[in-house]
Write a protein that binds this DNA or RNA. Structure first.
Lengths: 223, 223
DNA sequence: TAGATTGTTAATCGATTAACAATC
DNA sequence: TAGATTGTTAATCGATTAACAATC
């Protein structure tokens, strides 16, 4: 009945997808939905949906299905979207600025409070109402503020070093845009947005058919 | 010996990671590496690494291991990074511009040739040497150019509609930054960068411990 | 040659799917 | 009540790990 104390990665990755679809459904005025219907919409089996949801408790009702708004709210809670977070952005390059400008951010409790960069060209500029501070000010900020989430949008060469500083400064989670796999102590959360990895996967997929045909025909890669 | 005609998703997702680590190793002057050592670096088992690589052919040598540069090159080929691609960016907002500005792009064969946006405020500006064109010009461009990859960085409300236009116009792959799951015909590749999903997963993870403890203690979500 | 390490087959583990009793 | 659909257990499928013969 209650949640298993460990939820598998596969399930966690689907949670935001449930949230997205349920929000759409709610906006479209749909009041109830069965696992069957939701599955058709999301390209999942009804069985999988019921299994996933039951990791966190029985939010449905036999013979009826799920109440859309209620299920949406439960998943928002599960995702931690009913808290407020203090966010800082380290690195005010293209990515850092794009994140700062993302409008949907504060509505879900993610409040950007400061930005930092090494480049004198960027220090002092205003990004969506946030003043970019020099990197030397980061330590002082960490010493004097509770930071929940740090957005890491710096070159890979300094990513680990800054991460260590952030962790020592009490940051609880790192949203990492640097193309490295960070080493982190237990208890600090991380999620990666590896843009070039994503592009490489796309590139693989668009060439997959020919590649597999070539391999099946006995072709060796390389010369 | 030759590759299975179908490579699992799990393997494909690891390919860019192999590529990243091998590039690092090559840069660090490492000539050969065993699956054992590579596994320690990447937090994978040696067994898994050998299985993964052998989907595409036997690139190693018994008693020796893998030749770093050679394996890196084979994986680059597998990922399709030894081709040149024509890329357009649809949507010149924060994300579109960040992608356009990404410096590593052309080096790997991804050549951005045009950008489009609906906003008069953005049309005409120069982004990293590319002039932003009005959205009405998109159709003409598709009619007169071969586009391999389209970067989709538009609001979700128009994402599917533009996708259909791109597909009809012969685009082979879509790098999707809109927070929707696009419907696509067989033969067109897609890969999603769902930023808010990624942030939600981070948010889940930073709260997971308390959540699971609460659930184990019998707490119900909601009121 | 002996030692090392791959390529590959077999065993295990975990995630997905199917089935069905419980129940609204 | 009868019908529908969940919650949950059992069966299946696929991915990871272990083991080892092949071979450099």
């Amino acid at each position: 009945m209650a949640g298993k104390s460990r939820v598998s990665d596969a399930v966690v990755r689907r949670l935001p997808m449930y949230y997205r679809h349920l929000r759409e459904l709610e906006k479209a005025g749909v009041v109830r939905i069965s696992s069957q219907e939701l599955g058709e919409r999301m390209n999942l089996t009804a069985s999988q949906i019921r299994q996933d949801i039951n990791c966190f408790g029985g939010f449905g009702q036999q013979g009826y299905g799920y109440h859309v708004s209620n299920l949406k709210e439960r998943i928002a809670e599960i995702l931690g979207l009913r808290h407020q977070y203090h966010v800082i952005i380290v690195g005010a390059g293209n990515i850092g600025r794009a994140v700062a400008n993302y409008a949907g951010f504060p509505k879900e409790g993610f409040n950007v409070q400061a930005m930092f960069d090494v480049s004198p060209a960027l220090v002092g500029i205003d990004v969506h109402g946030i003043l970019v501070q020099p990197m030397e000010k980061l330590q002082t900020w960490l010493d004097t503020h509770n930071v929940d989430i740090a957005v890491l949008a710096v070159p890979k060469s300094v990513a680990q070093e800054i991460t260590d500083q952030l962790v020592a400064g009490g940051v609880r989670a790192i949203w990492n845009f640097a193309p490295v796999d960070l080493a982190l102590p237990e208890g600090v959360a991380v999620n990666n947005v590896h843009l070039s990895d994503s592009l490489h996967i796309l590139s693989y997929r668009m060439n997959e058919k020919e590649l597999c045909e070539a391999l099946d025909a006995g072709k060796q890669l390389g010369e």
